[in-house]
Design a protein around this nucleic acid. Structure first.
Lengths: 245, 245
DNA sequence: CGCCAGATTGAGGACGCTCAATTCTGGTGG
DNA sequence: CCACCAGAATTGAGCGTCCTCAATCTGGCG
């Protein structure tokens, strides 16, 4: 992690370019973005609830998540972010944060000024639409989580979450079957709408079925096809292969 | 409904302008959009799954919804659309439909060509960002649904759904406490992740508490404050009052 | 008048929750 | 080097919400 800014921008650029028809000039605009590197400790806020944000936040290392909360303190994780995710891109158009973002493990982030993003988005309309598209893709992940948490049982829910993170991890160059998770069992419960106790029992079940092992903050997938079937996982919603027409 | 196109564009413009700093010139661009009016019968597809869309779809009358589905046929509603909602705006940047959109009741829609939207978005960057913002606002609704379905019990879930639709209905000029719902109890179950049987029992419970009555495809709110408290409903996520800085 | 989708009610069962205790782990300080 | 500690993981027992299956009722429509 010699240069977090360059590393993170490169990952993000790869994802933007995957889904859009962009030019080398666009690439130069993105890789030339300014940004301030910052270390965030585990369980600390990256974006506070109600804050009016002026810079978007790009993950360079670690794991972060967006949180919602009910009145009686139940936390619900509404998105997970890994390196290369511009986790706050929508704040460019809606700067008032309606939910907090926290680091799940020790995390390195890069703060990119909104104005710089607006400027290059206006300079290149195709790039502007690529930003828009990035937000839409994130929204489709939230939609998939909605289906997952509303309609599947605990085993499928957790399997689905692990499949999604596996595929996204693979996209940034990690082995799909063995990668850092950056989440505790409590976090998995916060994401899937389950209690930590039930997460624990369900992970044991998945392990006993020979599908996946989840030691603390880590994932070892033993049977990808089995896990995928159990989760009914279809990566189409991640849009890693659908470019602009 | 003399002129569905003009009526629907006007509603949509109002929402765009509410959240953004737009000019009279932007207004002329939006209200001048072309569109083909179409009638869709109840339970028919407006957008088919897997279709590659070339026109976005604006609701002029009726109620529509986006659907997901699990392998064993459980349906999950991931968004509800009422008049003035550009339900397919994200298809401008991701034209491959990963989920179907259906009419819940008899619905009038307006098809607006993507190219026309791209053109006016490039002509006015502020307008382009307003489109982006509209998608982000929809995403935040999906996020709220995720919290709702993952963390609240049946009574709060249904109350929350009704509160949201009440506030959105009010925005388009309907009385907040008495409006058409366009959904059956089965649809409410599809939205909240509950079975129709349990929806029915829960609606009876809400009625017996004197909070709300839900005769077929209609809502009569008897005690707004009580319903809002029951739902833990806070309309901030709808962003009806947060403009661009 | 018959038909059908939707609404309604009953009875029993299952999945996930609550409460509680114990073990494991990594980090800290003596 | 070891004792200690906090947070996380693990396991057990009992319970409640919501589901399943099934039957009946209602209203709109051909």
């Amino acid at each position: 992690m010699a240069a977090p800014l360059a590393y993170a921008l490169d990952l993000w650029w790869n994802r933007l370019a995957l889904r859009s028809q962009l030019t080398p000039a666009d690439r130069a605009l993105v890789l030339g973005l300014p940004g301030e590197v910052q270390q965030i400790a585990s369980n600390r806020d990256i974006v506070r609830l109600g804050e009016c944000v002026t810079r978007a936040c790009l993950i360079a290392d670690g794991t972060a998540a967006r949180f919602g909360q009910t009145r009686d303190g139940l936390r619900q994780l509404t998105a997970v972010y890994i390196p290369g995710d511009m986790c706050d891109l929508h704040s460019v158009v809606l700067p008032l944060a309606t939910s907090a973002i926290q680091a799940l493990s020790a995390t390195t982030v890069v703060r990119v000024p909104h104005q710089a993003l607006k400027d290059i988005g206006e300079a290149s309309p195709a790039l502007g639409r690529a930003f828009w598209r990035d937000c839409v893709a994130d929204a489709q992940i939230a939609t998939e989580w909605l289906i997952n948490n509303s309609r599947r049982d605990a085993r499928s829910r957790i399997a689905h979450l692990l499949c999604e993170i596996a595929v996204r991890s693979e996209r940034i160059g990690r082995p799909r079957d063995h990668f850092p998770l950056g989440m505790t069992q409590i976090h998995i419960g916060d994401a899937t709408g389950l209690t930590p106790v039930h997460v624990n029992r369900t992970l044991r079940d998945l392990r006993e079925r020979g599908l996946v092992e989840v030691p603390p903050r880590e994932v070892r997938i033993l049977d990808w096809n089995g896990l995928r079937d159990c989760a009914e996982f279809d990566p189409a919603y991640l849009h890693f292969h659908s470019a602009e027409p």
